[in-house]
C-alpha cells in the first residue's frame, strides 16, 4: 500500500542506493575472502617442519625462518615489557591523579599525535635516537624501543577505557576505609583495569607483528640465530621484515608466501582473541 504512493523517482533512488550498498559490501567481503584464501593457498604448502625450525644457509641453499620467528618473539617481549608499565602508568595518571585539565589535554593530544605518525618516521627517529645517539647500533633492542613509542598510545587508551568502567564508589569506599591514594590504586584501580591491559597487549602484539617500516632501519635484517640476551643486542629481522627481504630483494616468493600465511594465521588468532577477551570481561562485569 505504501509502495503505491511513492513516486517513480523515489523508488529509483531507493533501488539505486540499495544496489550500491550491496555492491560495496560484496566488494569488501570478496576482498577479505580473496586475500585470506590466496595467501593461505599459496603459502601453506611451503610450510614444513624444517622450514620452521631451520636457519638460512647459503651453503646448502636451505631457507629456514627459525631466527626470524625468535627475533619476532624477542622484540614482542621486550617491547611489551617496557610499554606496559609506561602506558598503564600514563593512563592511571590521567584518570586518577591529573587535576589540571590542560595537562590532560596536552597528554591526550600528544597520544593522538603519536598514533597518527607513520611508521617510517618512527623508524627514522628510532635510528637517529636509539641507534646513533644512544649508540645501540642496529639491534633488536633499538627496534623494540622504537615500537614502544609507537604502541604507547594504544596501551594508554585501552587502559583508560577500562579504568573509566571502575565505579567511583569503589574508590570512595577504599578511601572511606582509610586507604591512602596509592593503596587505593593498587587494590581497587589496578585489578579493575586488567581487561584494558590485556586488550592493549593483544593490539600491540598485532601491531608489532605487522610492523616493518619502523624496524628496517632500527632492527635491521640479519637472519642469525641468537639467544634472547645476544639477540636483543644484535641486528635481526622479524617475520614481516624477512618477508619483505625475501620478496623484494631476493625474489624468493615461495618463502615470502609461507611467511605471509603464518602472519595471516597469527593475525586471525590475534583478532579472535581480542574479541574473545572483550566478551569474557563483558560477561564478568555484568555479574
Amino acid at each position: 500500500m505504501q509502495e503505491g504512493k511513492i513516486s517513480k523517482r523515489r523508488r529509483m533512488y531507493e533501488a539505486l542506493m540499495k544496489a550500491a550498498m550491496w555492491i560495496s559490501v560484496a566488494c569488501t567481503c570478496a576482498l577479505v575472502a580473496f586475500l585470506i584464501l590466496y595467501v593461505l593457498v599459496k603459502g601453506l604448502p611451503h610450510i614444513s617442519w624444517s622450514f620452521l625450525s631451520g636457519k638460512p644457509s647459503y651453503l646448502s641453499g636451505n631457507i629456514g625462518i627459525l631466527p626470524d620467528i625468535l627475533n619476532t618473539v624477542y622484540i614482542v617481549l621486550a617491547a611489551l615489557l617496557v610499554v606496559l608499565p609506561l602506558g598503564v602508568g600514563a593512563a592511571i595518571y590521567l584518570t586518577e591523579y591529573a587535576g589540571n585539565k590542560q595537562v590532560v589535554g596536552v597528554i591526550e593530544y600528544a597520544a593522538e599525535t603519536l598514533s597518527g605518525i607513520p611508521s617510517i618516521i618512527y623508524g627514522l627517529v628510532g635510528m637517529l635516537f636509539f641507534c646513533q645517539f644512544l649508540n645501540m647500533k642496529t639491534s633488536l633492542l633499538a627496534g623494540a624501543l622504537t615500537l614502544v613509542i609507537m604502541n604507547l598510545p594504544t596501551v594508554m587508551r585501552t587502559t583508560q577505557e577500562s579504568l573509566k568502567t571502575v565505579p567511583w564508589s569503589y574508590r570512595e569506599g577504599a578511601f572511606g576505609l582509610g586507604a591512602g591514594k596509592w593503596r587505593m590504586i593498587r587494590t581497587v584501580v589496578l585489578p579493575g583495569c586488567v581487561d584494558g591491559v590485556i586488550t592493549g597487549c593483544i593490539l600491540s602484539v598485532g601491531r608489532i607483528l605487522g610492523e616493518s617500516a619502523a624496524l628496517l632501519f632500527t632492527a635491521g635484517f640479519a637472519h642469525a640465530l641468537h639467544g634472547i640476551v645476544n639477540g636483543l643486542s644484535s641486528s635481526g629481522a622479524t617475520l614481516t621484515v624477512a618477508l619483505y627481504v625475501y620478496a623484494k630483494e631476493q625474489g624468493e616468493f615461495e618463502v615470502a608466501f609461507a611467511i605471509a600465511a603464518i602472519l595471516m594465521v597469527l593475525t586471525l588468532v590475534i583478532n579472535l582473541s581480542a574479541v574473545w577477551v572483550g566478551r569474557v570481561f563483558e560477561k564478568r562485569r555484568r555479574i
Binding site: 576482498l31 586475500l35 585470506i36 616493518s212 617500516a213 619483505y244 620478496a247
Partner: peptide
C-alpha cells in the same frame, strides 16, 4: 562483516605488498 573488516585492518602491510606484487 565487522570481524572481516578488523581482520583487513590487522593484515601486515607487507602482505598487501606481496599480494599486490
Amino acid at each position: 562483516v565487522g570481524a572481516a573488516v578488523s581482520l583487513l585492518a590487522g593484515i601486515p602491510s607487507v602482505v598487501y605488498g606481496l599480494v599486490g606484487m
